[in-house]
Amino acid sequence: MKKIYFAFFLLALGLNVQAQEATLKSDQDKQARAMELMSEKVDIKVDENLFMAVTPNTYVSESPKAVIMAMKVPESYAEAKKKINDSQDNKFKVKDRGEKTINGVNVLFMEGTSEAEGVTLNNTIYCVAIDENTCLMFIGMVEVGADAKYTEAITEAANSVIKK
């Protein structure tokens, strides 16, 4: 049960970073589109020896605490860029943010630390444009001090979704 709460905490953190502001007519339409996009399966390769699936796009490890999550969001790359650059949250301490190229693709990124259930986590967030009104968000979190294989598994999972 803790895994599910932990996954929902991470989902809330991801949604906090990327608020849902699609260019649709009403808030209900925006929410419906967001829910539809977030429920779509993302093609992601995750080391299932280290992570257990809790939803189709969310994988967790209980000990050490680590999470891999991918989701589509109803937001343009420009909107996502503005939000990542303007994002300030006392619960998330940003170490670095900006744009870089991964696998030949321009991505937005933000790295920092957060706390969940009394554990400090290193966080990496990537945002990739899918089309003019949709982005793919990738979130990887791992407990500070965890074995390097968890960080490597998160990097491999990110590389599996960030592609031309």
Rank of each mutant, 00 (worst) to 15 (best):
Q88C: 06
A157F: 03
E132D: 14
V107I: 15
T124I: 07
M137W: 02
V54C: 11
T55I: 09
K95V: 02
M71W: 00
N123S: 06
C127G: 15
V60K: 08
V54F: 09
A153H: 07
L15Q: 10
T120Y: 02
E21G: 01
D131V: 02
K41G: 01
L121D: 01
N159S: 08
Q18A: 09
N49F: 13
L11P: 03
M35K: 14
F138M: 14
E99I: 03
A12V: 09
F9G: 14
N106S: 11
Y5G: 07
C135L: 12
K25P: 14
I44V: 11
P64S: 05
K30Q: 14
L10I: 13
A148P: 04
Y5V: 13
L11K: 08
E36H: 12
K164F: 15
L108F: 05
K30G: 14
S114W: 10
T55E: 03
T151W: 00
I4V: 15
D27W: 15
V42R: 05
S26G: 08
I162G: 06
I102E: 12
Y5Q: 07
A32R: 15
I130S: 04
V142G: 00
E75W: 02
A53R: 12
V73S: 12
M1F: 10
I125P: 08
K82M: 10
S39W: 11
A70C: 04
D29S: 13
N57I: 04
N122S: 12
E152D: 11
P56N: 05
G145E: 07
A158H: 00
A12G: 10
G14E: 05
L24V: 15
I84V: 14
A78D: 09
A32Q: 12
C135S: 10
A146I: 05
A148E: 11
N57M: 05
F51P: 00
M110G: 06
K41C: 00
F9M: 14
D47N: 15
S63G: 09
K25R: 15
K93L: 01
T58P: 00
A19P: 15
A148M: 07
M38S: 11
R97K: 10
Y126E: 06
V119Y: 00
M52H: 09
L136G: 08
D43H: 05
T58A: 00
Y150G: 04
K82N: 11
A153Y: 09
A34R: 06
V60Q: 08
N49S: 14
T113K: 06
K163T: 08
I139F: 11
S160P: 06
E40L: 09
E21V: 10
E143W: 10
I125S: 05
